[in-house]
Design a protein around this nucleic acid. Structure first.
Lengths: 335, 335
DNA sequence: CGTGGACTTGACTACGTATGCATAGACCTG
DNA sequence: CAGGTCTATGCATACGTAGTCAAGTCCACG
């Protein structure tokens, strides 16, 4: 059915080796022969068999990208960048969605060991989640989150500093009762954002009211429910720091629902600065991380790791963040 | 480096054939031998080499999914369903993003011919876009959109009827000046939605004002800009039908921007009913298509096609749609 | 005690590509 | 013209798995 290099060889009355060399651009083949091979390959609509090539070269030209929940809009944005960057370098991208893939770790290990992928970008590593293989065993880079106990290439933004920026801005505007809607406790993103946030509050001499802390998923639903809850409480906060933008959207919607004006009565600050944060309907004040640069860095780190092997010591790159002031941030109401 | 079936055979002093048979569950191997093999495989952390397996079985266990623009939230929702369904059937999913992949068609053909994928789900086929290979050549199913001139398995919703439902609802509420913000002309989705919309307007005796028609991308930006434009025009519409939800969000944001109240002064109707349409901040009236069912159908169609080959005649499955009435739809203002 | 069948197992090969090694011819140099 | 170098090509093999065919063992039955 499919055309092989042997078919071309047979037609041109030459050996398969020569065909292979001609197609791969080996200089040890006569220019005229190369031309004939290329011509025949085009005419016969030849496509190299990737499985056979992989088997012998031990390279697949594919990388796996693991995300936590592809319907969370943060991931498609990052995925597109990664995907693009890898495509430029000649790698295909296989997607893994942890939420739907049963035992993703097992699958990932199989992929790399079974030579279906050359390396893995783990976007949503969770503290305590078993990683595929021992560190250093398979080329891997963590993006967005890191792991305390695993020494592996990592690309993150300065979440802690982001948290500080938020606290600083809120305190400066007179906020004292500030709620926090965190993400899952086992994510370094939420953990570090909260840590920085608390540090800066403390530095500013503002006590954090633990009764205003909520923990949930990185989802609209979580932000929505917890914000409704917070707004119904006795000591209603004047501001909410959401651990990411999607939570913030939920919080914003909750405020709308119960008629609390934003930012007049309630300030809301998110984290990530995904595209939607700039939409008129949200106009969310948030912490921006340089996603494109991070994606590029991750891709390059992984490619380098694939090509150089485990000799190079794992590196951790931390990218700067900045507060993007939009319309959900204002001075504390004097209630 | 990696453990092979031959390594296991060597250790157990048996042949590689027997190891292969034991691992694959061939009944012609003694129970005791099978147990020994499985035990050794586990201990040695054996993972079958997929490239080698693919080479001989001519099955890859992978399908490619092509989407137009992964950052458009419609696609992740569908992708998750497809991904999940294929995972259940034992297939991995490779993602293609047309916007970033240079010459996706070429890549796709290479994938299937080069045995890197068993089949393809083409989510965002565009009229006139060259498909990989001649139809019937590679297992393929189109989802969401179809092609006039290509006979291939297809899963779509009843877009035409959806358009009719929108026109019907708007006319019934007294709207006469209804704008249309369409998607790209070369998409059957936008085309059929518009067609149904026009048909029903005509049937209701309402003339469609061609000056209220706009065409753009399926993006927030397009909806935003065109809606600003429409609202600034002399004969401002009392309602807008957006070809999909993301356009509708843009339109909604534009109305907010210029202080036009929705739905009091302007009704907005979208299409797709993506998750976000139900968020408080949008609360969008829209046409729902049964995405989960469609995804499942597409996956099953493709799997069947992969396993049965081109003998089966291509089928087209059309799923029913329904109008979801939320808060952006109201009676026409008497301005 | 011989024969046939059921049951296990092993040797071997194919899949399509890449590449080390060998070879044949051309060309060059003294 | 002999010996060497260089160039272009072919031969053979490896990659790891699956499956074909043959063969060996064992037992039961006549």
């Amino acid at each position: 059915m499919a055309v092989t290099s042997t078919d071309i060889a047979r037609r041109l009355q030459i050996s398969q080796s020569t065909v292979s060399r001609a197609l791969r651009g080996d200089p040890r083949v006569a220019p005229e022969t190369r031309a004939r091979v290329l011509k025949a390959a085009r005419e016969m609509n030849y496509t190299p068999n990737l499985a056979a090539r992989t088997l012998i070269t031990r390279r697949t030209g594919t990388v796996g990208v693991v995300v936590n929940d592809i319907t969370n809009p943060f991931y498609p944005e990052l995925l597109e960048i990664l995907h693009n960057e890898f495509a430029l370098a000649g790698y295909r991208t296989v997607l893994f969605n942890e939420r739907t893939d049963a035992s993703a770790e097992r699958h990932l290990a199989d992929l790399v060991n079974g030579s279906a992928a050359d390396g893995i970008v783990y976007v949503s590593a969770t503290l305590g989640s078993p990683l595929p293989g021992r560190p250093g065993g398979v080329p891997m880079v963590l993006v967005n989150r890191y792991l305390d106990d695993v020494d592996v290439d990592t690309v993150v933004s300065d979440n802690r500093r982001g948290g500080r920026l938020v606290a600083e801005a809120l305190v400066e505007l007179g906020h004292r009762r500030i709620a926090l809607i965190a993400g899952p406790e086992n994510t370094t993103t939420s953990r570090d954002r909260e840590r920085g946030f608390r540090e800066q509050l403390k530095a500013a001499g503002v006590a954090f009211d633990e009764s205003l802390r909520r923990v949930g998923q990185f989802s609209h639903h979580s932000g929505y429910q917890w914000c409704l809850d917070l707004l119904a409480s006795e000591r209603r906060p004047t501001a909410v720091f959401a651990a990411n933008d999607v939570i913030a959207f939920g919080a914003l919607d909750a405020a709308r629902r119960v008629g609390v004006r934003v930012p007049a009565e309630l300030s809301i600050v998110g984290f990530d600065d995904i595209d939607m944060a700039g939409w008129e309907g949200f106009d969310l004040t948030t912490v921006r991380q340089p996603l494109a640069e991070m994606g590029r860095a991750a891709a390059n780190l992984l490619i380098e790791r694939i090509e150089s092997g485990p000799e190079v010591a794992p590196r951790r790159r931390v990218f700067p963040v900045g507060l993007v002031r939009r319309d959900t941030l204002a001075a504390a109401s004097s209630s």
